[in-house]
Structure formats: C-alpha cells, structure tokens
Amino acid sequence: MIVVEGLHFSYDGREILRGVDLTFGGEILALVGPNGSGKTTLAKHLNGLLKPVRGRVLVDGMDTRRHTVAELSRKVGYVFQNPEHMFFEETVFDEVAFGPKNLGIRGEELEERVRWALQAVGLEGFEERTPYSLSGGEKQRLAIACVLAMKPKYLILDEPTSGLDGKAEKSVVRTIRTLREEGHGVLLITHDMDLVLELAERVVLLFNGRELFEGSVEEFFELELEEYSLELPELLELAKGLGAGFVRSVEELMEVLG
C-alpha cells in the first residue's frame, strides 16, 4: 500500500501540491487533471525522486524521506512520459537488463527476468534490436519492460499512450491488463478519457494541486468534466443520448440496448 498524507510541495517558492491525500494498493488507479495540475509532481513523490516539504509518503510503511530512490525502485517502478529519455544501451536485451543489474541481479535470474519482461509487453524476439530503432509503440512498451524487469509491486505510467496509434495503444492496454492480473498496482496518469473508461478501477482528479475528486469510474464521469479541461468519452455521450446510462464498452452498450 502506498499512502500519501497531507502532501505539500513547492518549486521555487510556488506551491504545486497543496495538501494531497491518497491511498493506492493493488488496483488500476487513474490520475487525471489538466496540464500543470501537478500529476507528474505527485508521481515523483511516490518513488522518492521528490521529497515532501510537508506531509509524508509511505510505501509499504517505508517513509520516502528515509530511503533512496534506488531502494524504493524495488517497490515502485516509474515509466517516464518520454521513453527515449532512458534508452542508452546498444541492444534491447541490455536495456532491459540495466535496471535489475542495478539491483544486484546477475546470471540466470537476470536472463530470466529480461525474457519475462519482454514477453509481458509482447516484445519477445526484439532482444538484439537497437532501442532507438523501434517504433513509437514498441519504444513505449520497451520502457515498461525496463521497469517491469525490476519486479516492482507498484507501477507508475506517465501518459503511456500519448502519441501512439490505435494498434500500439491496444498493445499497451493489454500490457497494463496483464500486469494487473499478475498482482501489480498500476497508477495510470493520462489525459485519455477513453483509456480511463476502459481500464481504471478508481479515479483521482487533481486540480490546482488539490485532490478534487476520488471515487469510482462511474461517479467520475458524472462530474462536469469540461470544468477541468477534460472530455466525456464518445461512448458515454452516445450512451447518454440513447438513455442507456453508464457503460464501459461498446459490447455493454449493445447489451443494455438489447
């Protein structure tokens, strides 16, 4: 369990987080909010990259102020917004092996972890390719694999589908589902409301550094989303127009409509 209590944080004297409370366990939690609302800043507190000015963050009882990022990386994996910002090895295999190696894993276990992570994101067979030669969607999944190979209990994904085409997005979605089934908690930062509708089990809305809403996906989509520069998914617009109420997929809508 990750517990955030009364978290305050400022950059250069400007307050970005103004008292955020959050608990996050083994589910898929969507963290949404307009640009600049503090989502990335909050996420960086969960693996100790930033330390709270006031309040505290506990990861399975470990206070992030008393542990290094490297220690916390065993528990919390963080996939950054731009995957290219982390690639530097010559092959996909070495790139994925970098994280677990930093944790002191060697030999057979290392190989095994790399294969497992690549398989989880559907990149088996790419071991000898150069990371920079991959397509956008493949890079995104490689970035996830790099962090997965460290076997963190919790995974933070910062806009994992931005800039991806439909097919690439689907494979990222599938990857996230698999992770959830294997018992990982996933914190999904996104502007994509379709993704929230499709995947999330709980939603937190951040606005001006405060948590304005926390609850189920169904409750979330009852909010006036335009006020937060967010848009209702087309599927829900359609369902509303047809008087069908809350549905999560086209199939569900068809069923309701009979």
């Binding site: 490297a70 994996g77 963080y78 910002h85 982390m86 970098f98 994280g99 930093n102 962090v147």
Partner: peptide
C-alpha cells in the same frame, strides 16, 4: 531541465 529529467528516469531504474 532535460538533463534533470533524464537523471530522474535513470535513478528510477536504480542508477546511483
């Protein structure tokens, strides 16, 4: 700030 972001990303992968 780019260097800062990249360092953050690599630290998250256990780089010290």
């Amino acid at each position: 700030s780019l260097a800062q972001t990249i360092m953050d990303a690599q630290r998250s992968r256990g780089l010290e």
